[in-house]
Nucleic acid binder design. Structure first.
Lengths: 337, 337
DNA sequence: TATATTTTTGTTATCGATACCATATTTGAA
DNA sequence: TTCAAATATGGTATCGATAACAAAAATATA
């Protein structure tokens, strides 16, 4: 392996001078710079970051902790994060918690060990608080995206869950629905709680009583909604929902599939609205969705993180709320409209 | 920061002994092990990998170079890679080349600098050969996935492009099509070449002459097929294709969308077959696709890579070809069948 | 009991870069 | 021309771990 000493020797300068050239220090004469750069190129020298990190305590590596890279939502987050990180000269370590606190913890140790300069994290659930504390103890800055954690005060990029859910539910109400079900993720996740709360509040505001039989808890990943939907369909006619609100893309997607299998017409028999289902296939989607700014969660998140790392951020934690865009489509629109 | 010396001091042993405990060396008495482990836990000690890497020359970091994390195909690859890497105690550095050789090269320097133990790479195109040579020069093992590179002999996990394309085209021929168009990615990518060659060979075998007007070159990413399709539609009736073969998911997806916009009925007016379009939305897809084992590209790829890194691989390069599965659906099936 | 053998622990040098301070060289002003 | 100031370069210690060898302690053997 070519080291800084090999370069120094061949260029007839000290290692320190080579280091200065590499780090673009200005206190170098044009002549020596050229000379050194020539040798660097000739020998194909690439600095050893382990050595550099050891002394500088900086790795230029950020960790991206998401719950599921298989989820198109997080794929967009990753895209945004990667774009910004690359642009700023940082590399990205991919961590996939699978919505699982233990796996997240294991990654946490690895990324601390590796010396991540910072972490962009969509926490698995409220337990992740422990992991945030650990980061703080190790002096590693982090930015929370998508999901907040109670009592953790830090830079955040979040979605406007309250407002978006309200608009979604009010849309259903306007379409004449009174029996609206929600199929949600686990309530240990802040987004699930916020969406459910907004769902409840909105119903109440509009004088609709909340029926607990219409509230189903599933998973954001491996979301098998078969049972939830079966239970909804088994309700007596008077209670049976005429609309379903799915709180994430997989739940929405699977809801549509199961309804289809049951031969239930959407929206005639049951209307559906969902969060974030991507339109990856052939025709235009028929599903009404609230589309979050996934890409910006990653992009802006990394920006905040780097500002924090490089000391360019204000002391006070920043909280950025990105609005979602609602696409009204056939799955929730009455024919007569 | 807590170092190995802090632990040593507090546990009343030498740093070397602590190191042995961390690395699970057996030459440690049960008593001292317990003692040291207690202190490690008490002080929340996590070893500094930069220091460790500097001397061991191993980082336990692998790089995953893909062309687009936004592409569901590569998302699955990443999922498989992540699963296996985590299982084997490695971390994954995410590199996104955007089908761009320069960006790939930039990442290459970064990952060499970081000290990646190995690289799993879907190369941008044939130019990537230079980058492979660079890796070799730096003694970093790599495994090629999805795309091969001329004259590069290394472990590979590839798709059976020849056979799969043939089956796809023969299916179309069996459905009565003689005028079959192909909308392909750039021919500097091996998969594009192989699929096109197989398309041509299959037509010839079946006595169908190849019409160059039916061969369109687009992009695997940001694939705007508007022009290609417009040109196909502008062909005189006698030449106009009755079927289109899309060589990747984005091309397939966009082809369907554009045809839909042109109000062209699929499959009645034009049949469509494609590679890899995921079924991420509401209903069952109507698109006939060849589904590659994307997950296994990542999973097996990482496995081969780690075997190679850890010296558990045979000298000779291994080439693993994973068959694709064809899902016949409405987009290519005649009504009468 | 004395010695050989095995097991456990410690000492020192080292990995490849940069920090910090010292020195040499150049430039500018008097 | 001379000396001060500014600029450019170098020497040495250091980051935190492990390698390689050395020594001490425990155990086995005669």
């Amino acid at each position: 392996m070519v080291t800084i000493y090999d370069i120094a020797k061949k260029a007839n300068v000290s290692a320190m001078t080579v280091s200065r050239v590499i780090n673009k220090s200005e206190k170098i004469s044009e002549i020596t710079r050229k000379k050194v750069e020539a040798v660097i190129k000739e020998l194909n020298y690439i600095p050893n970051n382990s050595a550099r990190n050891l002394i500088t305590k900086k790795t230029k590596i950020l960790s991206l902790m998401i719950t599921d890279i298989g989820n198109p939502f997080f794929t967009s987050v990753a895209r945004g994060a990667e774009d910004k990180a690359m642009q700023m000269g940082y590399q990205l370590l991919l961590c996939n918690s699978d919505e699982n606190f233990e796996k997240e913890s294991k990654y946490m140790d690895m990324l601390i060990s590796t010396g991540s300069d910072g972490v962009l994290i969509a926490p698995a659930n409220d337990n992740s608080k422990k992991n945030m504390k650990k980061l703080t103890k190790h002096g590693i800055p982090f930015v929370l995206i998508d999901r907040r954690i109670p009592d953790i005060d830090c830079d955040q990029v979040l979605s406007d869950n309250e407002a978006t859910t309200r608009r979604l539910i009010e849309h259903l109400i306007k379409q004449g629905h009174r029996k609206i079900a929600i199929i949600n993720g686990p309530l240990v996740v802040s987004t699930a709680r916020e969406r459910q709360q907004s769902y409840i509040d909105t119903l109440k505001i509009h004088g609709i009583s909340v029926n607990n039989d219409l509230i189903k808890e599933s998973h954001f990943r491996d979301s098998d909604v078969t049972n939830s939907i079966q239970e909804l369909l088994n309700l007596p006619e008077s209670e049976r929902p005429t609309a379903i609100f799915a709180t994430n893309n997989f739940i929405g997607m699977n809801t549509m599939k199961i309804l289809y299998r049951h031969n239930i017409k959407v929206p005639e028999e049951i209307a559906v609205v969902s969060y974030d289902v991507p339109n990856y296939t052939e025709n235009e989607s028929i599903l009404t969705v609230a589309e979050q700014q996934a890409y910006n969660f990653g992009y802006i998140g990394i920006q905040l993180l780097i500002e924090r790392i490089e000391g360019a951020a204000p002391e006070k934690a920043r909280k950025i709320v990105l609005p979602s865009e609602i696409h009204l489509r056939a799955s929730s629109l009455n024919q007569r409209d």
